[in-house]
């Protein structure tokens, strides 16, 4: 509509016109995003297998046989990751006996991969940390930034994706995990 108005001779300068186009784009994005969020979409988590810092092998399909899996991508240089991981570790401590698995993948590349283990030990991380210097696990998940977490239901479907971390996020995460835990018979 705004473009039409401009074409009909309203005296809007090029500066305002570009700013108006920018706002129009924003409006379109918001509309599209809310519409898509309402639909919800479900995809299957790509399978992976990897060794943690202690040499123990973890495989997604084996973990899913026990219950839901939270797959988290972090890096040694990522500040919000350092805030998030201790909080999620508390959830893992609480629900791991009920089949919940928390596996993290260090996004550090080959140059900085040597920093992962000392950092994890100094921070007291007890959950499995898998090294992925060539992003072989991260790329099929289209990981864009750190931290990014994928909550995967026991049937292999990705239930939710969380990018970034805000203190308190773990509360909503806990609610989602509880919904996915195997029912006690």
């Amino acid at each position: 509509m705004l473009e039409l108005a401009i074409d009909r001779g309203f005296s809007i300068g090029p500066r305002l016109r570009r700013a108006a186009s920018f706002c129009a784009l924003l409006g379109a994005l918001l509309t599209a995003s809310f519409a898509h969020a309402a639909e919800g979409s479900i995809t299957t988590a790509p399978d992976w297998k990897g060794e943690d810092l202690d040499g123990k092998t973890h495989e997604l399909k084996t973990l899913l046989a026990k219950g839901p899996v939270l797959l988290n991508f972090w890096a040694t240089w990522c500040k919000p990751c350092m805030q998030e991981l201790p909080e999620v570790q508390k959830l893992w401590d609480k629900y791991k006996d009920q089949g919940f698995s928390f596996v993290t993948v260090a996004y550090d590349d080959a140059k900085s991969v040597g920093k992962v283990k000392p950092l994890a030990k100094s921070k007291g991380f007890r959950f499995p940390v898998i090294l992925d210097p060539e992003h072989k696990i991260a790329n099929p998940y289209s990981v864009r930034n750190c931290p990014t977490s994928f909550l995967i239901a026991p049937d292999g479907k990705i239930v939710s994706i969380a990018q970034g971390y805000r203190p308190g996020d773990e509360k909503a995460l806990e609610e989602e995990i509880v919904k996915l835990l195997p029912k006690k018979s």
Binding site: F34, A37, V159, S160, G164
Partner: peptide
């Protein structure tokens, strides 16, 4: 301003 829309979208202004 950073807004998470649903579980799969992120908007930053």
């Amino acid at each position: 301003w950073n807004l998470r829309v649903g579980s799969r979208h992120q908007l930053l202004l």
